[in-house]
């Protein structure tokens, strides 16, 4: 059964009140909420090459109407984000019906932004610029000493125009009171923002939370390799806490008191 039929059935049977997918408008593939009131729109239903954070839209809708039943076309990254939002009680699984579609690379998306799959094809523009943004954190650590790593990140962060795009587009940034707007942590009105605090605050929040969808890096006008940074944060989280955000319905280790610890404090080397 093709996806249009499936959506029609879900709507008609009342399994979902609104279905979030894409449609084509003036040559742009944009998200759209399909409901029983606009069934005729269904013939334009598309599975987009462009990714938008549909699960973020779902949280907005849920805010307005908590028991709304929402259907979503979901790729792997959408599904990971949904899992994470369930564990943080932002959405409840009873109200969400994901319809899984092909992940990238696929018929819907022939090149991949997803780090897990085709790292080398990512960000041609960025590669052209001479910095391979999909670098391997291990190589980065091995090839650069402390000072070089510091220079690199300070250079990257200093390009920031403080657009808050990384936070705004992120499906798992849902706080009503964002630390990045807290004047005690990040000085208001200063541009570039206080570095590296601005980015490290966000990086810390993304530890145990970022599901590596890459939307932030896509949205960053300064081409800062945010995904690389957050991926390394979660490499640490998975080493230290044995937790992968979005993989299942397990709560983030940062929200609970852990049980058994096998780590030893590190020796102080001079």
């Amino acid at each position: 059964m093709n996806i249009t039929k499936q959506v029609e059935q879900l709507l008609k049977q009342g399994d979902v009140d609104i279905f979030l997918a894409y449609r084509e408008l003036d040559g742009h593939l944009i998200p759209h909420g399909y409901t029983l009131d606009n069934l005729e729109d269904l013939e334009n239903l598309k599975v987009s090459q462009h990714r938008y954070s549909l699960e973020k839209v779902a949280t907005h809708l849920t805010e307005k109407k908590p028991n709304l039943k929402i259907g979503i076309v979901a790729r792997d990254c959408n599904q990971r984000a949904l899992n994470l939002l369930y564990t943080w009680n932002q959405l409840s699984p009873e109200n969400i019906t994901p319809l899984m579609v092909n992940c990238c690379p696929s018929q819907t998306r022939n090149h991949s932004d997803c780090t897990y799959l085709e790292p080398k094809k990512t960000g041609t523009f960025k590669q052209k610029k001479g910095i391979d943004f999909n670098e391997n954190p291990r190589e980065f650590m091995d090839n650069n000493d402390n000072g070089q790593r510091f220079s690199r990140w300070m250079y990257e962060f200093s390009k920031c125009i403080k657009c808050y795009g990384c936070r705004n587009i992120c499906p798992v940034c849902f706080c009503t009171d964002c630390s990045l707007e807290n004047p005690d942590l990040v000085e208001p009105g200063a541009l570039p923002p206080e570095i590296p605090i601005f980015h490290l605050v966000r990086a810390t929040h993304m530890a145990g939370r970022c599901i590596d969808c890459g939307l932030c890096e896509d949205a960053c006008p300064a081409e800062i390799p945010l995904r690389f940074l957050y991926r390394e944060m979660n490499r640490i989280v998975s080493d230290v806490f044995d937790y992968t955000p979005g993989a299942g319905l397990e709560k983030s280790p940062f929200t609970i008191i852990g049980n058994e610890v096998t780590l030893e404090p590190r020796p102080m080397d001079a």
Partner: peptide
């Protein structure tokens, strides 16, 4: 340990 690793990554 997490913060130590993060600082290490940051140089």
């Amino acid at each position: 340990t997490f913060v130590q690793e993060m600082l290490k990554f940051m140089g």
